[in-house]
């Protein structure tokens, strides 16, 4: 399934400057292909995360459309969009996002029980935790985990419902070289399994793993590697 941004923009209003608004994302069209990693790099504040959030259905664009297959996701009601995100779009948000009240395995299972009772979700969660290398921490709480382990928890959680698209926002931020390599290899493996991966990162190393690379500059992505999307 292809996730596509068609001429999306995000405009914010502000009172303090001469012009009363600015574009966090200028008109952008891009496509995430099945089985490939699309990387968006660029300086802080260049609009990378804003674009990712719009693609995830978490931030309504000021104009343009986001299509998942043939569906314009922002034409859906909140309940339908939430369900679609739950089943088809895995998101790894920036920062530490473990839910403190739940153990690692409960964190991973949670998306799979929001809309249905899945009989094998615990099995699937353990499988993912093994893949990301933190199965031994399944019954620990997020506060007991290191930064790298928390990122891996977020990756496993984003993949629990076997989404067609995985959107990762700075998944290697603050990680050491060893953990950075581990996370990038994991994302590559998932892409090779057919998942469309969007990787928003500052990490120079990531380019080696990506099929398509965009550099975001003042809200506009310029393609610097790969076939145009």
């Amino acid at each position: 399934m292809i996730l596509k941004a068609e001429a999306v923009t995000k405009k914010y209003f502000r009172k303090s400057s001469e012009s009363n608004f600015f574009y966090a994302v200028s008109e952008t069209t891009l496509e995430l292909r099945e089985g490939s990693i699309t990387e968006i790099t660029g300086r802080s504040g260049s609009g990378k995360s804003t674009l990712l959030n719009m693609l995830a259905g978490l931030l309504r664009p000021s104009s343009g459309r986001v299509l998942l297959g043939e569906t314009d996701i922002y034409s859906l009601k909140d309940k339908e969009l939430s369900r679609l995100r739950n089943s088809s779009i895995g998101v790894i948000p920036q920062g530490q996002t473990g839910l403190d009240s739940l153990t690692v395995i409960e964190n991973v299972i949670l998306p799979s029980v929001l809309y249905k009772v899945s009989l094998n979700s615990e099995e699937r969660a353990m499988e993912l935790l093994e893949k990301v290398g933190i199965a031994q921490l399944a019954h620990s709480y997020p506060k007991e985990l290191s930064g790298g382990e928390l990122r891996r928890l977020a990756i496993a959680r984003a993949l629990i419902n076997s989404p067609a698209v995985l959107l990762a926002d700075e998944p290697t931020g603050d990680l050491d070289d060893e953990n950075t390599k581990l996370v990038l290899e994991l994302l590559r493996n998932f892409a090779d399994d057919g998942v469309s991966v969007l990787l928003v990162t500052h990490e120079a190393e990531a380019e080696k793993y990506a099929d398509v690379v965009y550099r975001m500059n003042a809200g506009k992505p310029d393609q610097i590697k790969g076939r145009p999307g």
Partner: peptide
């Protein structure tokens, strides 16, 4: 609010 945003990221609807 960040916790709630994470629930929304996972697919929890506003009503839920």
């Amino acid at each position: 609010k960040k916790e709630f945003a994470i629930y929304r990221v996972m697919g929890m609807s506003r009503a839920m």
